[in-house]
Design a protein around this nucleic acid. Structure first.
Length: 614
DNA sequence: CCCCCCCC
C-alpha cells in the first residue's frame, strides 16, 4: 500500500520526544475549539502518519486563516515545516504530548486525495515507563540546562509528577509548554517566553485596599499572554524584567482575561504568586517569534465599540503639531499630537499620541504606523484611537503588511478619496457626513433609536407611498415660531406659543412617506425644508394646492413616488403615554450617485466574501 | 488585588 509520501512512524517518534524534520502527514479531521470570539479560537487536528492516528495536534493561531480558507480539510496531505511539542499532562498513566503546528505547506488538497491513506491506529499516551526511561533527557543532548528553576522545591512544573525525585531540575526547550496550552485547569507548566511590552509600576488605593503592580505581555511561538505582578512580586521582578528578553516562567495563577483591557489573543491572563519562578533564558538563538496581529481595516473601526482594543496598521497621511495644554479636570500639563492614519479600506482614523510618543513622532515622514492593542474611543460620534499601557506602536515595520500598505499609499492611496471614521456626526448635528450605511433590516436588528440619543444612518431607498393627507399644516407666521395655529374661524389664527392672534399664517410641511430598500421598509417623516427640496415647490405652493387643487397636489407627490434617494435618517424611540414608538425622520435625501453607491456595494462584497480584498 | 491612560 502506498504511503503517499507520509512520514510513517513520525508520530511514534515525537511521542518519544524525538524530532524529525519536515514530516508529512494526512489530516483526517479537525475540531474548532471555541474561545471567546474569533481571536481566541483554535483548531485541533486529527492527523495520521499512515501508521498512527493522533488527535492532539494543535494548529498555531497564525494558521487559523489557512484553516478558514479550507486548505486544511479532511484528507489533505501537509508537510509540517515547523512544530514544537510539549508535555501537557504527566501522571501515573503516562504523559500527554501536544504537537503545536507552527508552519505548514499543503502538498495536496483533501479533495484531490479523497480518502484515508492506510489504516492508521489511534496512539495511546506514552506509558510512564517509557517516559521515565527516556525521560526528559530523551533528547540526545539537552542543550539548555536550567539549573535553578524550581530548585529544591521541585517546582519545575511538568517534572514534578514523574516520580523521579533525584532528578535535577534541568529543563530543555522541549519540556516547556506552549503559552496557548495554558489553562486554569492545569498548573504544572513552564513557559519560555519573550517579553513584548512591560508597564511601569502603578499603585492603587481603593475601598478594597491598596498596592502596586506592573504587568507585561509575553509571547512564544504558540501565542501570547499578559502577566501581572502585584506587591511582593512587583518588587521582586520589576527590575529584572526587560523588554525583548526571554524568560522561563512557572507557577502563575491563570484566570480569564478581561478583554476590555487587552487585545492579546488569549482567553486567559496570569498573575504571579509566591510560588512563581522567573528566570532569564540567556541562551536563545535570538530569533523572535512573530508577534501576532489581528489587523482591523480602518473602515471597520467605525463599527467598533468604544474601549475595544484592536491592532491597526496604516500610513500616517497627516500629523498635527504637538499641542500643550492643562487638563481642566486634573490640572495636569499634557502634550498631545493628532495623527491621521489611512489604509486600503479607503478610510482614515485619528490617532492621539501623548507625551513622549507625541514629541518623538516623525511628523513629516509619513511613516507606516503599526499598532498593537490600540484603544478605540468615541468622540462626537466619530471613532479615534489612543495608546494605553499594553499598547505597542511600531513605525515602518519591515513586514509584508507594512510594505503592502506602504505600496498602496505610494500607488494612489495617498490621493484616494478617504472617509474618516473619526468625523464627528454629532447628535442632532444634521446627520453629519460620515453617517453609517445600513439596510432597514440592519437598523431594526440593531435596535437603532432605542438609546438616549438619536441614531443616524443612511440608506438607499425608494419612495413607495406618500401620505398627502395632513402633509401640510398652518403654522404661526412669526419667523422663529413654527407652532401650529388654531383657526379662530374669524379670519384670525391663534398661536398658543406666542400667545397671540394673527390675520395670517404660513404653511409648514410634515410629509409622511413609506420608503423601502431591498430588506424592508419604514415610515419616515420629511419636514418642511427637505420636503420643499424634494418636491421642488415652496410650502406655500404645496399648501395652497393641497387645499384648493387636490388633483395637482396628488400629481406633485406622484412625481417623486417610486424614485430612489440616498436618505440620511434620524431615528429615536418616543413615548406616546406608555407606548414606545420608533420615530424616523429624514435629515437629507440626495439623488443616488451610482458611481459612489456601486463602490460601496463592491466594498461590501469584498468584506463579505474576502474576494478582491486589499 | 489593577483596569487610570488624559483634551476637544
Amino acid at each position: 500500500m502506498s504511503s503517499h509520501g507520509l512520514t510513517v512512524g513520525f508520530l511514534a517518534e515525537i511521542m518519544q520526544g524525538n524530532e524529525l524534520e519536515n514530516p508529512v502527514v494526512q489530516i483526517l479531521g479537525s475540531k474548532r475549539i471555541a474561545g471567546s470570539g474569533e481571536q481566541s479560537e483554535r483548531f485541533r487536528l486529527l492527523i495520521s502518519d499512515g501508521k498512527s492516528l493522533y488527535s492532539y495536534a494543535m494548529l498555531g493561531t497564525q494558521l487559523n486563516d489557512l484553516h478558514r480558507q479550507g486548505k486544511l480539510q479532511e484528507y489533505a496531505i501537509i508537510r509540517i515545516d515547523r512544530y514544537t511539542t510539549s508535555v501537557v499532562n504527566r501522571n501515573e498513566k503516562g504523559e500527554k504530548r501536544v504537537l503545536i503546528i507552527v508552519d505548514v505547506t499543503v502538498l495536496k488538497e483533501g479533495s484531490l486525495v479523497g480518502e484515508k491513506i492506510g489504516n492508521p491506529q489511534p496512539m495511546t499516551d506514552t506509558p510512564s515507563q517509557a517516559a521515565a526511561a527516556s525521560g526528559g533527557p530523551d533528547k540526545p543532548a539537552p542543550s539548555r540546562p536550567m539549573d535553578t528553576l524550581g530548585g529544591a522545591g521541585n517546582n519545575a512544573g511538568n517534572r514534578s509528577m514523574s516520580g523521579n525525585s533525584t532528578q535535577n531540575a534541568s529543563l530543555t526547550d522541549s519540556l516547556t509548554h506552549p503559552i496557548s496550552s495554558l489553562s486554569p485547569y492545569q498548573n504544572k507548566w513552564v513557559i519560555k517566553a519573550r517579553v513584548m511590552s512591560k508597564s511601569g509600576i502603578r499603585t492603587w488605593s481603593n475601598a478594597k485596599g491598596e498596592g502596586k503592580l506592573f504587568s507585561m505581555d509575553v509571547m512564544d511561538e504558540s501565542g501570547e499572554i499578559r502577566v501581572t505582578a502585584f506587591k511582593e512580586q512587583c518588587d521582586r521582578y520589576y527590575s529584572m524584567i526587560e523588554v525583548d528578553k526571554v524568560y522561563f516562567i512557572s507557577k502563575c495563577q491563570l484566570k480569564p482575561a478581561n478583554k476590555q483591557y487587552t487585545s492579546l489573543k488569549n482567553d486567559y491572563e496570569m498573575t504571579m504568586t509566591n510560588d512563581t519562578v522567573v528566570q532569564e533564558c540567556k541562551e536563545t538563538d535570538g530569533s523572535l517569534p512573530e508577534i501576532q496581529y489581528n489587523f482591523v481595516p480602518i473602515s471597520q473601526i467605525a463599527n467598533m465599540e468604544p474601549n475595544a482594543m484592536i491592532d491597526v496598521i496604516g500610513v500616517c497621511k497627516q500629523a498635527g503639531e504637538v499641542v500643550q495644554f492643562t487638563a481642566r479636570t486634573s490640572g495636569r500639563e499634557l502634550k498631545k499630537r493628532e495623527v491621521t492614519l489611512v489604509d486600503s479600506s479607503n478610510a482614515s482614523v485619528e490617532l492621539t499620541l501623548w507625551g513622549e510618543d507625541a514629541q518623538n513622532f516623525p511628523a513629516s515622514a509619513n511613516p507606516v504606523v503599526q499598532l498593537k492593542g490600540a484603544r478605540v474611543s468615541e468622540f462626537g460620534g466619530g471613532k479615534t484611537l489612543g495608546l494605553v499601557g499594553g499598547s505597542m506602536m511600531k513605525l515602518n515595520p519591515d513586514s509584508e503588511v507594512g510594505h503592502k500598505v506602504r505600496g498602496w499609499y505610494e500607488n494612489g492611496g495617498s490621493d484616494a478619496s478617504i472617509s474618516s471614521v473619526s468625523a464627528r456626526t454629532g447628535a442632532g448635528g444634521g446627520g453629519g457626513f460620515n453617517t453609517e450605511w445600513l439596510t432597514f433590516q440592519e437598523a431594526k436588528d440593531r435596535n437603532l433609536g432605542s438609546g438616549d440619543k438619536p441614531d443616524y444612518f443612511q440608506v438607499k431607498a425608494m419612495i413607495h407611498t406618500i401620505k398627502s393627507a395632513n402633509a401640510v399644516y398652518k403654522a404661526c407666521p412669526q419667523t422663529d415660531c413654527n407652532k401650529k395655529v388654531i383657526d379662530q374661524e374669524n379670519g384670525q389664527f391663534r398661536c398658543e406659543k406666542c400667545n397671540a392672534e394673527f390675520p395670517n399664517f404660513k404653511y409648514r410641511l410634515l410629509v409622511n412617506m413609506l420608503i423601502g430598500d431591498w430588506t424592508s421598509n419604514r415610515w419616515v417623516t420629511v419636514f418642511t425644508e427637505l420636503a420643499e427640496e424634494m418636491l421642488g415647490k415652496t410650502s406655500q405652493e404645496i399648501g395652497s394646492s393641497l387645499e384648493f387643487q387636490k388633483e395637482e397636489a396628488e400629481k406633485l407627490f406622484g412625481s417623486i413616488s417610486f424614485k430612489s434617494f440616498v436618505f440620511k435618517l434620524r431615528t429615536k424611540v418616543e413615548y406616546f403615554g406608555e407606548q414606545p414608538r420608533n420615530k424616523t425622520s429624514a435629515v437629507s435625501a440626495a439623488p443616488v450617485n451610482h458611481k459612489q453607491y456601486n463602490a460601496l456595494l463592491i466594498k461590501s462584497i469584498q468584506e463579505l466574501t474576502g474576494v478582491g480584498k486589499n
